[in-house]
Design a protein around this nucleic acid. Structure first.
Lengths: 263, 263
DNA sequence: CGACGAGTTGAATGACGTCAAACACAGTGG
DNA sequence: CCACTGTGTTTGACGTCATTCAACTCGTCG
């Protein structure tokens, strides 16, 4: 009732997520208009998390990589479609989730490139475990299984890098599982906020989180309903831990937030 | 009220889980009494899931593997202890979970050998993500990072196998996460039962699940309380889907169970 | 203006956890 | 053989947290 949206904070909604809502997925499955530039060293280093990745290994990957442009709203791959490649995201934003019965999409995770989209299914002769849908125009890199095997033979060092990338994914998933099993909704939200709070934005001591997706998508990721998210935000605000202005969340008490994320 | 425990079904509780409850973890951290026999081809094939694994690769692994015997109740590794090895379980039963504040242990998963215990942390210079505690006397195989790198150089095919093992782990964890996010307790129990129902045991058509751990540990794995598990079992029984006799669960209606596991 | 979609808020419902008591069974020692 | 004890499980009463349903507001787009 007291504090309505500040003038400049509300319109900052992540444009494309709103302006491209669900129903643009109709035609134009590929767009050869923009010639895809081959992926460079920077991409591979970002994906494998090592600034020390030798150029030769990058090249071996680039040789077998296939770039694909996907329009916003389009499906990139779908669960239960057999996976023949390891898939990475070069540019843009992708919603990973599951397309449920009546066509509605349940987002489980939102990924912004560069990042892996499906690092595991491609190695097994198995289906993708999720659906992936572009929420912006994206550029996707696919590494077919056969090509990967070849690259591994040429550059044995790649094997270790791939193993480490998978190991990181396992760690992340295990942590996620742990949270879901043992933390309640407030703790999960607190952790989520703490994880992505940028240190400060000039104005003194305050940490800030800019929500870059719709709040309902944030809720999806936390496995709660949008209503619950809203209530939790208000509850945190009443406690003086955060301050919400549209899609900008100011963290007033970082320690309290960390404490709430514990249990 | 009507059906009390059948005479022969109840005592079948998985002995050691009962007779070794919590408090044997005191001394004797290693037991050189039994000379550990070096791990054989069968172990590696079981771990990597391929009957086609060449003997040379197995040998390369065996060369760097270190076997360790751990007594029941002992810790095998502990979370926040830096991991220097990939760890596998050869024999016995291990509870993976987290040792919470006051010393109580929250089981998240129960593993019976042969299986991987921590396939990911050892590759990164990172901590184990869980605690592991032997619930029977176990035989553990450790593959130190340095040795693994060496084995990978000698046998390049090992890289691919390791990648596939990790990929399988990622798939399993992703499925688990998915269940926790979107399935309620009855669905999770139904799925858990359906997953481990042995086809039949001679007596006609009936599928059977033998609980090989305490019910409270089953509950832990499903992220519910023992009370809720008990109530769900009774509710399923009332629906005519299962029949519970101590630690033996008869599946009366496999299809109904599968249906309940869906949503 | 009117429609629509995002977010918020309130009331009602339900699912699951907590607490406490009772029960079943095994092992022990009289 | 029989109480007695300890552990595991079951049951009931009750509370809490989160979802559901139904308004309602705000802003944008037609």
């Amino acid at each position: 009732m007291e504090h309505r949206y500040a003038a400049s904070t509300r319109p900052a909604l992540p444009e494309r997520a709103i302006t491209v809502p669900q129903m643009e997925a109709t035609h134009a499955s590929r767009r050869p208009a923009v010639v895809p530039t081959p992926p460079g060293v920077a991409l591979w280093r970002a994906l494998f998390g090592g600034p020390t990745m030798p150029a030769a290994e990058c090249e071996a990957l680039a040789d077998v990589a296939q770039v694909r442009q996907v329009a916003a709203g389009q499906s990139i791959f779908s669960h239960s479609e057999p996976a023949t490649s390891v898939v990475a995201l070069r540019d843009g934003e992708v919603a990973l989730g599951l397309c449920i019965h009546d066509g509605t999409f349940r987002t489980e995770r939102i990924v912004r490139g560069p990042a892996w989209l499906d690092l595991s299914s491609g190695w097994l002769d198995d289906c993708h475990s999720m659906d992936a849908r572009a929420s912006t125009p994206v550029s996707v890199v696919e590494l077919p299984q056969a090509g990967l095997n070849q690259a591994l033979r040429l550059q044995p060092g790649l094997g270790l890098r791939m193993i480490q990338a998978l190991a990181r994914e396992v760690q992340a998933l295990a942590a996620n599982t742990h949270e879901l099993m043992h933390k309640d909704a407030p703790a999960r939200l607190a952790q989520w906020l703490a994880q992505r709070c940028e240190p400060a934005v000039g104005s003194g001591e305050q940490a800030v989180v800019h929500l870059r997706e719709r709040k309902r998508d944030v809720a999806s990721q936390l496995a709660i309903t949008p209503e619950t998210l809203s209530r939790l935000m208000r509850s945190f605000t009443r406690l003086g831990v955060i301050e919400v202005a549209g899609y900008t969340v100011h963290i007033l008490d970082t320690q309290a937030l960390a404490r709430m994320a514990q249990a």
